[in-house]
Computed example of a mutant assay.
Amino acid sequence: MTEIFRRHWPGDTDRPALALHCMMASAGYWGPIAERLEGKVDLHGFDMPGHGRSGPWQPEANGPDYHTATTRIAASFINHPLDLIGHSMGATVALRIALAAPEAIRSLTLIEPVLFAAAPDEMVAVQPDGDLERLISEGRDEEATRQFLAAWGTQSYDVLPDDMKDRMRACVRLVAACTPDLMRDRANLLREGGLEAITAPVLLISGEQSPPSIHAIAETLASRLPDVGRAVVPDAGHMAPITHPDQVAGLIDVNLDRA
């Protein structure tokens, strides 16, 4: 099993919470969010396999795919109801956990969930990183990384230091490994009656400047969730937790109060 680096921002021990980060990053960016929540929750996180300070992803023969393995790691943090927060791919993992065990979720905050299977095909077809799978299949990992960061990151690949470029190139194949889950809903997150069974308060947060597909995903999910709110962070894009921590933390706080 890949060694997983755990993170903890202490707070109210009667209010456990788990935050799940996006691809090509690490759980460290939840630190400023935790600081702004001022101990309201006892926040835990972890670096996904192949990210941050965790070990590299080591798939096993007949073992789980990357999305499933990450979901199982996240679920291992849960021993009683908690507040669950996820961003991007991490938001799809959070949603998968809430679907599997709705009774374990006190509140659910989904920031830019990239469940592209929930968006219209014509929007997905014009995704800014639409060539990612092809580039990787051709062994053009550097170009794929550059394209991914241009679409979803906060910095251009070309301005990054060499060691960070190396880490990003190593991660980009993990992005492609999740394509069946995000584009084709391999985990069946959109199954009939699933979303409707999540009774915890849900908040969907989007960046104002994010691609149309992101807003379409939020609209689809919101139309089926029983107790849901939506929020748009002005002037923000996909990486709102990093670029706009004040606004994102404030919105998370609102959803915590709803629970």
Rank of each mutant, 00 (worst) to 15 (best):
A119W: 00
G194Q: 04
M239Q: 09
M89C: 13
R184P: 00
L182D: 00
P161Q: 10
A151E: 01
G139K: 06
W30Y: 15
G50L: 08
H44W: 14
D129Q: 02
F46V: 04
A144R: 03
Q127Y: 01
A125V: 03
V159S: 15
P241E: 10
A118P: 07
A125T: 02
W9Y: 15
L110N: 06
P128I: 03
M123A: 12
G229T: 04
D163P: 08
T68R: 07
G39I: 13
A222C: 03
A151W: 00
D257L: 13
D129L: 01
P161C: 14
V124D: 03
G63S: 07
L203M: 14
D14H: 13
A222P: 01
M23H: 03
P49Y: 12
S137Y: 00
C171A: 15
A259P: 00
A104C: 11
G250M: 12
R167A: 15
A27V: 09
L251D: 02
R191Q: 11
E35Y: 01
N62P: 01
P211Q: 08
V202I: 12
P56N: 12
I4T: 12
A27G: 13
M1R: 04
W152V: 07
G55Y: 09
L135S: 05
A69F: 03
M48H: 11
A144M: 03
P81V: 10
L251H: 08
D83K: 07
A74L: 09
L160S: 07
I217V: 13
L251V: 08
A176S: 14
